[in-house]
Write a protein that binds this DNA or RNA. Structure first.
Lengths: 330, 330
DNA sequence: GTGAAAGCGCTAACAA
DNA sequence: TTGTTAGCGCTTTCAC
């Protein structure tokens, strides 16, 4: 067990005080002779000295660590989001403390407490809850916080999200142009998840004046969704299905394949594709592709900016354009 | 900015010394009166006190943090691996410090240095390099380290991996039974990546006595791989393609679809499917499904065990069975 | 059963 | 231009 060398020993070896070494570490060269500077540099090199982070944090109350809490670690959207964040912080001094809420609100609260307790300098949060009071402890801390993918209303922190509402307007246009008569929106529980609500609301709002009906089935809450979907498809009206996220889209495709329902003949199909797999499935499925990597990058950039300039950012929604890719299914 | 309450203030409020509070925090109740115990408990509750992690670490030299360095954060294999690790540590006091090497060796080295510098108590490593000397600094530290997905030879640390070699033996049997005459193995660079090498070696070894030829194309190193694959397919021999990981499998499927090459008629196809998407593609593709979640869990469990029992683990390979799912493509 | 005091490795105010 | 000193929040030895 290699005991690590400390600032004291470096100071002793270089024949200076530890203050001077500390000045060197923090690049305060204004009043330092070239000689001592070089002497310290050499010693640090030679002994491969790295300052102890905990001691630095304890003293300065700044951990140079960014806390992240994601809703669910195990999907590609999250991976790409994290990649974007990670790349942006790559060449800074910040470390990332990534925590998974695993879609449980208590875990998210716990994550936030742990992150605060680790004295993180900023937080990137993919919020699970839409109840602002849950995040009161973040507000109290006055820490820089950026939301990603979703936001909590009323706005307390800036949020980097996809242009969910806008994309649904485009889908509404399409659906009208193609003369569909009813739309079935399939989703995981949407209540409180701003991204999903925006996707649904965009469509409903745009079609409210039309005579196209919009229905919602939350497949994770409704064990009978298979039957209901079949009923919709069997009705005489021309029906389209809109899957609000990738996971749901693939479940629907599996279901349709199993029941030999052909799209777009028997039913129209469009959905979110966070896995970029839609082009592999024949016939091609029309999808909306988000850009989680850019969402992550953007969030990280804004956070970094706040950290460096100490200027608080006003709560606002920053939208990253998703991409509509039309194929044959709608 | 809510200044956090410290052990000193808790002590003052509870009318005891901070030593006693510290004893309480560390559950040293042997010589503590019920009265003080309750008094401290109440005060801690009331003020929502959480001990400062940096101070604890500085003092005890144990950070209660596990460092993780993954090869590439942005694929599902990694996500599921991390989920398995994360779930296992969920109910412990350990935090996870996750770092992405982004497939760059220098980054991995840097990650390791950062993790050591953060005084992590253990490391889970998906190694990028096969050169043991790169990891000498880990050996020197005497830290518990577990490798996942891949290993470095000669063995310095235990490794949790898929049964890559064994699965390739099964594939060799299949290929012989189906009377293929040549196998084209498609991969990303395999040199030094034990998992990929094991997959290739298993197949080659099993077929060395047969008259089935085995060829390798590393598609990320060979910009001309499309042409070469076409040449193989056009040969009179009955050909099968074996894609050594998910990403490669999907690239091959895209390529075959684009060129209207039909499997299994024109060419047999089997590959690793870490995304669990193969069942969506028609006709069904035969795949090997790994279990990264279980690999992560297992790695975390062994690490936790070492941490708690202070017993070093002997370097060994622990294999987690992958699953062969046969469909129509081979 | 409890507390005083030293010290983990660092930074920063102040002194020289 | 450099050093002395105090202290960040905690644990632990030793004393009572």
């Amino acid at each position: 067990m290699n005991k690590k060398i400390t600032i004291n020993e470096i100071a002793k070896i270089a024949n200076v005080s530890k203050t001077t070494v500390s000045r060197f570490l923090n690049q305060k060269f204004e009043n330092m002779s070239q000689a001592t500077k070089e002497k310290i540099e050499r010693t640090i090199q030679e002994y491969d000295y790295q300052p102890n982070r905990q001691a630095q944090t304890l003293k300065t109350q700044s951990s140079l660590t960014i806390g992240i809490s994601v809703a669910d670690l195990s999907n590609l959207y999250t991976s790409r989001l994290l990649k974007g964040i990670s790349q942006t912080f790559q060449d800074t001094n910040y470390q990332l403390l990534i925590m998974d809420a695993d879609n449980h609100q208590e875990r998210e609260i716990n994550n936030i407490q742990v992150l605060l307790n680790e004295n993180v300098d900023g937080i990137i949060l993919q919020p699970l809850s839409h109840i602002p009071s849950q995040y009161q402890l973040l507000v109290d801390q006055g820490l820089p916080v950026i939301q990603v993918d979703r936001y909590v209303e009323p706005f307390t922190f800036p949020a980097i999200v996809s242009d969910n509402f806008q994309k649904s307007l485009e889908i509404a246009d399409l659906v009208q142009a193609k003369q569909y008569e009813q739309i079935l929106v399939l989703a995981n529980q949407i209540s409180g998840i701003s991204s999903r609500m925006n996707r649904f609301d965009g469509l409903s709002n745009a079609l409210t004046e039309s005579n196209i009906s919009v229905s919602l089935i939350e497949i994770d809450l409704d064990s009978d969704w298979h039957t209901k979907v079949m009923q919709f498809i069997e009705q005489p009206q021309k029906t389209a299905i809109f899957a609000l996220n990738g996971q749901v889209l693939w479940e629907v495709v599996r279901f349709l394949q199993k029941n030999q329902i052909i799209y777009p003949k028997d039913v129209g199909l469009i959905g979110y594709d966070d896995d970029n797999f839609a082009d592999l499935i024949q016939p091609g499925i029309s999808v909306i592709k988000q850009n989680p990597h850019q969402i992550g990058q953007t969030a990280a950039k804004y956070l970094l900016d706040q950290l460096q300039n100490k200027t608080p950012m006003k709560p606002q929604n920053i939208r990253i354009a998703a991409e509509l890719e039309l194929r044959h299914s709608l």
